[in-house]
Design a protein around this nucleic acid. Structure first.
Length: 519
RNA sequence: GCCCUCAUCGUCUAGCCAGGUUAGGACACCAGCCUUUCAAGCUGGCGACACGGGUUCGAAUCCCGUUGAGGGUACCA
């Protein structure tokens, strides 16, 4: 066995032909790697559902790599599984990527558009003896597998079924028998350098011949991917860890097809809370869900980028450009991370209060529409949003905060108003306040503050006696921004109106009966 | 079963490759400050090297094993 083992690195990569594209990779977890661009990377989702956060993270990593080294990102839709593919999902995925700010340089290309080329590649392999006809039925193979499994061993096709001799092939094909095409996996161990895991070896004993063309003539995933990666000139394949065991198959195919083998990097899976599989049950799992929840794309991008990568210093909230500048593959983390909704929420709050107001307003639009504020005055809206952005964790909350500024009448919660009912003088005091607001010359922060403070002095009460009911009147809430800011942003008309409604509410609702006699 | 991979606070991570740190930061949580309220902000607290063996004067760091977790094991992708 020993003599026939082949080390892929030494045996199959004779001359660094691609110059700048060639990378020296040797990463035990900590060995240095030098990657140089330009690179050609790809993101190949299957159009079978919404863009999952795992996929988004893969896309982001590819995006960061291509921007940090220069090069291009190819979007390829892997729609070879016609059963499960849905064209609507292609558009969906594209829009999710666009929303995240990831713009492919090329594509989308449909994998299905090139099946003829894929078939031709299979034929070429067949002609060169690198693949062979497989007349075995699935049942037959499965039986062998089951049997082996029972005995506690693994069944390998190439050990169990020798390829049929040429004359037999000719005869059976002529007879119209259906067959699949199976790739003849080269003998020897397969070792490759993974950008995030370092050297990974699959020993010869676990390698097997695999189908590249189904008996209906359709190419399988492995063939299609490799053909398209060759066609696209892909230099770096960065994808999820679930593909790592496909690498030997793919390397075998790249070599058999006479192509240069790209550099691989396998990102760990993203786990849900409690290390469970991330799914709708554990919380949102797709990009559109987060979008609909009011997460800013910058925040999601930033959060996802940091899930499995760090810049090496203590920076966390980083602009796209900062991430690009700091990005290196050697800082990719090999261990799987659990998605932390709390941290994303915090990150989103950071962006909500830190991004330019206009940017926030743009993203807020759909949420404003949801609460009936589709055509609210942008200036007043801006003032309101600016006051509440440090208090909101998502755009939904932020939109809700804007409602009192535009709605005619507010609903007051008797529970929250309890203490105001106990102030018999309050309605009259608020009446005076209304008068003050009506007549104050300039209705701005200083103006309203003066009105409130002067009135408090006149009434010989603390400012808080007026401030708290006013907050309740204008926002139907006990908490919120500085009251003077709130009133000023609300404007004279709305402030006076809400105050008027509030006095009426106070007068119309008798104070709640005494505490239950049980005390 | 077999194969591949991973393993530092509850979570994300820095430190590991080139052994010597009070093992650093962030989220969450708790407390204080600020304050007209609520946030934000600031300050402090809580809290980890999975386990067992080696190697070494010295191990989170190097080696071996165990355990745990994830992925793969298709004429799915």
């Amino acid at each position: 066995m020993l003599p026939c083992r082949v080390n892929f690195l030494s045996a199959c990569d004779p001359a660094p032909s691609a110059g700048a594209l060639l990378s020296t990779i040797s990463r035990g977890p900590f060995m240095a790697t030098t990657l140089t661009g330009p690179v050609r990377v790809r993101f190949p989702p299957s159009p079978t559902g919404f863009l999952h956060v795992g996929g988004a993270r893969t896309a982001i990593t590819n995006d960061l790599l291509r921007h940090s080294l220069g090069g291009s990102l190819i979007l390829r839709i892997e729609d070879t599984d016609r059963q499960r593919s849905d064209p609507a999902m292609t558009a969906q995925i594209q829009s999710a990527l666009a929303w995240l700010g990831i713009e492919p340089d090329e594509g989308p290309f449909l994998q299905s558009a090139r099946v003829d080329e894929h078939r031709a590649a299979a034929q070429k392999l067949l002609d060169e003896g690198k693949a062979y006809h497989c007349f075995r039925t699935a049942e037959e193979i499965d039986e062998k597998r089951q049997d082996a499994h029972k005995r506690g061993v693994t069944s390998f096709y190439r050990a169990a079924f020798p390829p049929p001799p040429a004359d037999e092939v000719e005869r059976r094909v002529a007879a119209g028998e259906s067959y699949a095409v199976r790739f003849r996996m080269p003998m020897g161990d397969m070792t490759f350098s993974d950008l995030v895991r370092g050297e990974v070896t699959f020993v010869e004993d676990v390698l097997d011949d695999f189908i590249i063309l189904r008996s209906d003539g359709s190419p399988t995933y492995h063939l299609s991917v490799v053909c398209d990666d060759i066609y696209g000139g892909v230099t770096h394949v960065i994808r999820g860890e679930d593909h790592i065991s496909n690498v030997p198959k793919h390397i075998g195919l790249f070599q058999a097809l006479g192509a240069e083998v790209p550099t691989f990097g396998h990102l760990p899976m993203i786990m849900g809370p409690g290390r469970k599989r991330l799914s709708k049950r554990t919380g949102a799992a797709s990009v559109e869900e987060f979008r609909d929840q009011g997460i800013l794309p910058q925040a999601l991008y930033n959060y996802l980028a940091l899930l499995g990568w760090s810049p090496g210093d203590d920076r966390e909230v980083m602009s796209r450009q900062e991430m690009i500048d700091a990005f290196t593959v050697e800082r990719l983390v090999p261990s799987a991370a659990a998605f932390d909704y709390d941290k994303l929420r915090w990150m989103n709050a950071q962006y909500l209060s830190g991004e330019p107001l206009a940017e926030v307003l743009d993203h807020l639009a759909p949420f404003l529409a949801e609460v009936g504020l589709a055509d609210a005055d942008r200036d007043r809206l801006g003032a309101a949003v600016d006051l509440h952005r440090t208090r909101a964790y998502n755009l939904k909350e932020l939109a809700a905060y804007a409602v009192p500024y535009f709605i005619d009448t507010l609903e007051y919660d008797p529970d929250l108003c309890k203490k105001f009912f106990k102030q018999p003088d309050l309605p009259a005091q608020v009446d005076q306040l209304i008068e003050g607001f009506r007549t104050v010359e300039t209705f701005d922060i200083e103006g309203v503050e003066a009105v409130i403070r002067n009135l408090a002095t006149d009434l010989d009460v603390k400012a808080g006696v007026l401030i708290h009911p006013t907050r309740m009147a204008l926002s139907a809430s006990k908490a919120g921004p500085s009251l003077f800011d709130l009133v000023a942003a609300m404007g004279r008309e709305a402030s006076v109106r809400h105050l008027g409604n509030f006095v009426r509410y106070l007068r119309d609702n008798p104070p709640p009966q005494e505490e239950a006699a049980t005390t």
